[in-house]
Design a protein around this nucleic acid. Sequence first.
DNA 1: CGACTTATTGATGCACTTCAAGCGACGTGG
DNA 2: CCACGTCGCTTGAAGTGCATCAATAAGTCG
Lengths: 252, 252
Amino acid sequence: MTHALAQKLDSYEALSDQDRWALDGLVLRTRQVGAHVDLIREGEAPENVHLILDGFACRYKVLPNGQRQIMAYFVPGDFCDLNVFILDEMDHNIGTISPCRVVDIPRRSIDEITARYPNITKAFWWCALVDEAVLREWLVNIGGRPPNQRIAHLLCELHTRLEAVGCVTDNSFSFPFTQIDLADTMGLSNVHVNRTIRELKALGLITLKQRTLTILDVDRIKAYCHFTPNYLHLRNTRWGDRRSVSWINREQ
Amino acid sequence: MTHALAQKLDSYEALSDQDRWALDGLVLRTRQVGAHVDLIREGEAPENVHLILDGFACRYKVLPNGQRQIMAYFVPGDFCDLNVFILDEMDHNIGTISPCRVVDIPRRSIDEITARYPNITKAFWWCALVDEAVLREWLVNIGGRPPNQRIAHLLCELHTRLEAVGCVTDNSFSFPFTQIDLADTMGLSNVHVNRTIRELKALGLITLKQRTLTILDVDRIKAYCHFTPNYLHLRNTRWGDRRSVSWINREQ
DNA sequence: CGACTTATTGATGCACTTCAAGCGACGTGG
DNA sequence: CCACGTCGCTTGAAGTGCATCAATAAGTCG
């Protein structure tokens, strides 16, 4: 059974057996972390890279008034802070949502890998750039989409990302997020998240029972929120020749 | 007269004379671009890195309903897409706000520089990570702050970033953004942006005349929106020992 | 079983959007 | 040179989408 990281990198570029062995060496020392535990906090100096092998985590900040803003979700196979060594200190927190299996990778191990395995190095780069692209899409999501499409879009993204690491069966996947988590992610109140989710259920797009989310009609929910996965830059995904829209034709 | 890039990198780590010369070689071939011109569009394959030497540009997407979402502002000294080669095609557009002096840097030049100048390589890394940190802060801004603080926060950030490249005198700087630009940046309507800006003027925090913005009371506007520049990771900036807030104490 | 968190639902209010109209600055062409 | 169109800013009026407050129900964990 291959771990989520190898599966994820493989979805970008085919890995050799040597590459795989090197990755296996990276993830030898895993540790189990409970739910709602901080892996690293704002103000601390980053020592290790955190890799999530199992479970869900997130990146977040807390504003002076106590408001929490979640900026990213981490799913199995995701690095939390791959290149963070460059910066002197963390400007945000990283905490678990559900119990997680985590690997703490020292900087030296990353350097050694990138020195010897160009394929992996390239794949790491790809990870970092995709993470940034996801962050951009979240900004678009919060800034530009109405709440119902906003939440649907997040669900489509999670579905796609989790599918790439084999965590989806029959369009169902583990969904440990509370409605408060979602509210703090989407810039909405928990009450409104509740009503929006019920709307998505009523439309027959999803079901959500016992922390398991099922997408009932993948095509319809993607159409519903205009989900295009191009920003995830997956190898096997193809979508129509969607031409870009420029400055000129701003209105419809 | 040193250009904005050298000045910016120097604000991170002191550069040697050799480093400076190498950077000067990078920015030899500049070109002038008008306002509201796309430098690169969604769907295109990235060929060159774009560096802004003078003027303002932005990163944006256009949603199916015609809504534009701006995801980043570029000021003098900023790379638009430093590491974008890794990805097959652009997932967003980059366009100018004002007329700009731009350098198109081919991938090879970047590779040569990073192969020979470790200081510059490290500084480039720092640029990329700070850009990402800024993006995160924008997400917090849109998701978590009320509109008045949201706009004030953007102005504080611009002030700080422009100061680092010598584009601020007497707390005044060029401000070519229209209120529609700001609206598409902040996830607000242009009407509300207008009223909020008038509020900031009425509070005596700013003036805005002939595309020049002046911050009348830097300390007060920073306090007004709880601006902390730690996410910009500037060398010379120091701020109090702001301890991080964690999961536990969520409410105030 | 009891304490606490999470989900749900209703009622109220206001912050924001939308629509609309007027105004000044600017550029272009007749 | 003036007429006209466009664009950005401003302001008013009206409607509503979302937050806030509150109270109950349903899980969940010790």
